Amino acid sequence: MKRLLLIVALLSPVIVLAQKTMPKTFDLVVGAYTKGSSKGIAVYRFYAETGRVAYLSQIDGVSNPSYLCISSNNKFVYAVNENDEGEVSAFSFEPKTGALKFINKVSTLGGAPCYVSIDKAQKSLFVANYSGGNIAVLPLNEDGSIAPAVQTIRDPGHGPNAARQEKAHVHTAVLSPDEKYVFYTDLGTDKINVTKYKAKKDNPLTPAKPAFYSIAPGGGPRHIDFSADKKHLYLIQEMGSAVTVFDYDNGKLTQKQTVTLLPDGFTGSTGAADIHVSPDGRFLYASNRGDANDITVFSINQENGELTFIDRKPSGGKSPRNFVIDPTGSFLLVANQNSDNVFVYRIDKNTGKLMQAVSRLDIGSPVCLKFAPAQ
């Protein structure tokens, strides 16, 4: 009996650690356009064992919080205000209750900000201004508030599509896995720009060598994600409705494969949007809007990072602008902007395919989904 108790005592810390590392409940923070029924940012409790979603709280009066990021300590939420004047707002966040409290708001020095990211040290925010055509860097204070922008970078180029690429349109700003670089895509100039990052008062971003990589003219680069082994970068082309695979090594990219998101013979309108690698690194998912309204699933070759088509699943609504995979890798949640809903699909972890939806959340114009541990 004493020996059994000793074994249990030795194993208990391991069990507690595992539970702390991968919780079973999360906070789901939802950003939305407020031109319709949505009034701001909503927070829900997500149960990773069942895929069930329960309402927690909402903060009203936030104008068009179309994209969000959450600080690494889960104490702060930052949301762009996607308007012509261009602003970004800071909120304190209480994971236990999901409560948000406004801290401050500052200019992004560019119109229609559509993406915001944060470094793990919580020193800087990086904002992509779509109509402003520039990336902005904004320092963060210890209390979570945002300081005025200290740097903006704008590409004066353009692309071949006169209607969509008349000037620069920066769409995303993503840190490299080691956070030594910031990559920002430019839909208007068909480029992935690469900058070195160092948190400091002046010019935290400096051009890498090379400073950019071009894709096929008219492709319209949008979002990116890295492979689990950090050896590959995946780019979704909004206008080209394709995914391009790059080898990645210390800030440098080598293009190696491009695969379409469209079935043979497809002739409708499209608008590829979001892209994510599964937590186990085995599968890649990409969303497409327009007349497609689906999620495409690819397997990832673990040796070379290349993609193989697996399946295509309707998103459950119209315009799947953004989606997220829960940290356990069990569910994919897709935000359908133009049908005012979020569908929760179970993932078959063996095949990567999306199974039948297990729950649905009705919310006005959802466009961004982010997870945080529920403490």
Rank of each mutant, 00 (worst) to 15 (best):
V29S: 01
A272Y: 12
K230N: 14
S37T: 15
Y47D: 12
A372H: 06
K318H: 10
N81Y: 09
G316N: 05
T267W: 07
G157V: 14
L261F: 14
K231S: 08
G240L: 09
L125H: 11
K201G: 13
S299E: 08
G352Y: 10
P113E: 10
N193C: 14
A9W: 11
L6Y: 14
S315W: 11
T189D: 01
A112T: 14
P113M: 09
V334H: 03
S269L: 13
T97C: 01
T97F: 11
L17E: 02
D27Q: 13
V367T: 15
A242F: 10
K101V: 15
F371H: 06
G265K: 08
Y248T: 09
S269G: 12
G86N: 08
G133H: 10
H223G: 04
G157K: 07
P113K: 10
I215M: 01
N64E: 07
G98Q: 04
V297Y: 02
L361P: 02
L187E: 11
K24Q: 07
A211S: 13
L140M: 15
R282T: 12
P65Q: 08
S71H: 08
D186V: 14
K123R: 10
P160W: 15
L187C: 12
K120P: 00
G364N: 05
D311F: 09
H276T: 06
L100R: 03
G61M: 05
T258P: 00
N141M: 09
